[in-house]
């Protein structure tokens, strides 16, 4: 084991931890093991997170004697975001009054998607042919998940749901009606997923002055 970071007595295995969440995870625990390598007792005082999503799990034991090891655990609430999220927790030793923290812990989580939506935006150029284009949705899970409802926010786009493989693969066939005006629309869809952040999804459609199809 290589201990890499020393901060006034506490030597951490790593100040930065990255993990990948499972689709059903709502909270992830990040662990930062350390050892007090100094000759004095070290007490962790206050802490402050960069967001409401990160909390110190349990800090009832704050003082560590020379040679003693411990773990700081952070609870990371995942919310409805998907993708890569990096957050920081600032901690100060007891008695340290400076604005700069005594040390910073970084937590990075990769939150998977339920449906891969490709492309995420369909584009047409204003004045071009009103070609039908397709958005493909493929479930990234072994369990089936169904699309239960579709709403298109702009009546200038005709949207049809095509089921390719029930519970796993779907397509939206989208055809713009009037190509003479710039326009923006959203296809909103619901799913029957048990996980809150996967119950709704979306794809976008635009008719723009300049478009890179």
């Amino acid at each position: 084991m290589t201990l890499s970071s020393v901060y006034a007595g506490l030597e951490f295995k790593s100040l930065s931890v990255e993990q990948t969440a499972k689709p059903e995870d709502s909270v992830m625990v990040f662990s930062y093991p350390f050892t007090n390598t100094s000759e004095k007792a070290v007490t962790i005082g206050r802490f402050n997170a960069g967001c409401s999503c990160l909390e110190v799990k349990d800090l009832t034991k704050k003082t560590y004697q020379p040679g003693e090891s411990g773990v700081i655990e952070l609870d990371f609430a995942l919310g409805t975001f998907t993708g890569k999220v990096e957050k920081t927790m600032y901690l100060w030793y007891e008695g340290v009054k400076t604005k700069s923290p005594s040390f910073v812990l970084r937590a990075t989580v990769n939150i998977p998607v339920l449906f891969e939506v490709e492309p995420k935006t369909l584009k047409w150029a204003k004045g071009a042919e009103a070609d039908m284009k397709i958005i493909r949705l493929s479930a990234q899970t072994d369990n089936s998940v169904h699309i239960s409802n579709i709403i298109c926010t702009n009546p200038n786009f005709k949207v049809e749901l095509v089921t390719k493989k029930e519970g796993y693969e779907y397509e939206f066939e989208v055809t713009p009606l009037d190509m003479e005006k710039v326009g923006f629309g959203i296809i909103k869809f619901d799913t029957d997923s048990q996980v809150e952040r996967f119950r709704r999804g979306q794809a976008f459609m635009v008719i723009s002055r300049t478009s890179k199809p």
Binding site: C51, T80, F81, R197
Partner: peptide, 13 residues
């Protein structure tokens, strides 16, 4: 925002 209190899809839309 990616704030866990918000529904990101709703904000994105």
């Amino acid at each position: 925002t990616d704030d866990a209190k918000e529904n990101f899809n709703d904000l994105l839309n």
